[in-house]
């Protein structure tokens, strides 16, 4: 996988745009998923995930080919997500609940278009409330929790993606877990 990606990146560097399409195809689901869990809204997730790939394309010559492309693209994506969260909610910590619900409403609107079988509804509701609780986390905890438990990345990789010392990542994961525990206790 890494070898294919390396080859494609070299083709992109030579000006082959189609080779980049193959890279997008390989990573789109993971990047989109991370964005979705960070932002809690499909529309924004798509927008930011696309933006992440475009940034990757325009800055591809700064990418160190000996490193993992996934680390790099996740780094771009999480940074864009955090920017978006901060721009959207400058007073995030004050009215976290309102802002969180807002993202969720849009998500449920998109979903309500398609009819769901009865048994799926319950799990959908559970999923929505979990997503809502994730959205309520302060962004610094949210990014580590998403990378750790949604993407199942190692602490070391997370520290590379977020450009934070390993100790900080650990502390944030601990605090994020504690915060989520309190929020999800009732479920």
């Amino acid at each position: 996988m890494e070898l294919i990606v390396k080859k494609r990146i070299q083709q992109v560097l030579k000006g082959d745009q189609n080779a980049f399409g193959e890279i997008v195809e390989l990573y789109k689901d993971r990047v989109y998923h991370v964005c979705f869990r960070m932002l809690g809204n499909r529309h924004e997730a798509e927008d930011i995930a696309q933006e992440a790939f475009i940034r990757a394309y325009t800055n591809i010559h700064t990418f160190d080919i000996d490193r993992k492309f996934s680390t790099w693209i996740f780094r771009i994506a999480t940074n864009l997500c955090i920017d978006r969260i901060r721009k959207k909610k400058p007073d995030y910590y004050l009215d976290a609940e309102v802002a969180g619900t807002e993202g969720l409403t849009m998500y449920s609107q998109v979903e309500s278009d398609e009819p769901l079988p009865e048994d799926k509804v319950e799990s959908m509701e559970l999923q929505e409330s979990i997503q809502k609780e994730i959205s309520l986390l302060p962004d610094k905890y949210r990014s580590v929790i998403v990378l750790k438990y949604i993407e199942e990345l190692s602490l070391k990789e997370i520290s590379e993606i977020l450009d934070l010392p390993l100790g900080t990542v650990k502390t944030r994961i601990h605090r994020g877990r504690e915060a989520l525990r309190k929020q999800l206790r009732s479920i």
Partner: peptide, 12 residues
């Protein structure tokens, strides 16, 4: 953790 991990993997 189990709850967070139970969220389905959505696709682009």
């Amino acid at each position: 953790i189990a709850l967070v991990q139970s969220t389905s993997h959505i696709q682009a």
